[in-house]
């Protein structure tokens, strides 16, 4: 499986993300010292499918909340809520602050309006899928949150 890693990986913050291959679409994987951080990193991985998240300016703040019976479905709902906000507000996001508790998620996302010239968005994400869906801790205790998105 081909992967491409991004972010920092020191002992203080284990936050980083990578893409993994899916035949027609794109796999997202976020890592963090907490579930919240892994969810934030997965969101950055999703933005990186569309554009370079580092060039998205945090001009506007959007509140997002969702609830689901388990962490895996919560990850799907979180990504789908972002997809919905991007589509209806014509925005891209570059920064996230996530808080999860007992199957509910409260988050803030920061970003700006899509600018085709500046962002050169490659593709729009249609929805998060249950393919390769997993949320949990690896053998080192690092939180991992992953799934494939349909583009």
């Amino acid at each position: 499986m081909m992967c491409e890693e991004h972010g920092h990986n020191d002992s203080m913050t284990q936050g980083r993300w990578e893409h993994f291959s899916h035949e027609a679409d794109m796999g997202l994987r976020g890592f963090g010292s907490s579930c919240d951080q892994a969810f934030e990193q997965t969101a950055i991985a999703m933005m990186a499918v569309i554009t370079d998240p580092d060039i998205v300016v945090a001009e506007q703040e959007v509140d997002i909340s969702c609830e689901a019976p388990d962490y895996e479905l919560l990850l799907i709902d979180w990504l789908n809520a972002l997809i919905y906000e991007m589509a209806t507000r014509r925005m891209l996001f570059g920064r996230f602050d996530v808080h999860t508790k007992n199957g509910s998620l409260r988050a803030k996302a920061w970003g700006e309006k899509v600018d085709a010239t500046k962002h050169e968005p490659a593709v729009e994400v249609k929805g998060a899928t249950y393919t390769a869906l997993h949320v949990g801790r690896d053998e080192n205790g690092t939180w991992v949150a992953q799934c494939v998105v349909d583009v």
Binding site: M2, E4, F20, A24, D25, M26, V151
Partner: peptide
């Protein structure tokens, strides 16, 4: 039908 992922194609 795709033969290669977007990820691979981009590289």
């Amino acid at each position: 039908g795709r033969a290669m992922s977007r990820h691979q194609a981009k590289r």
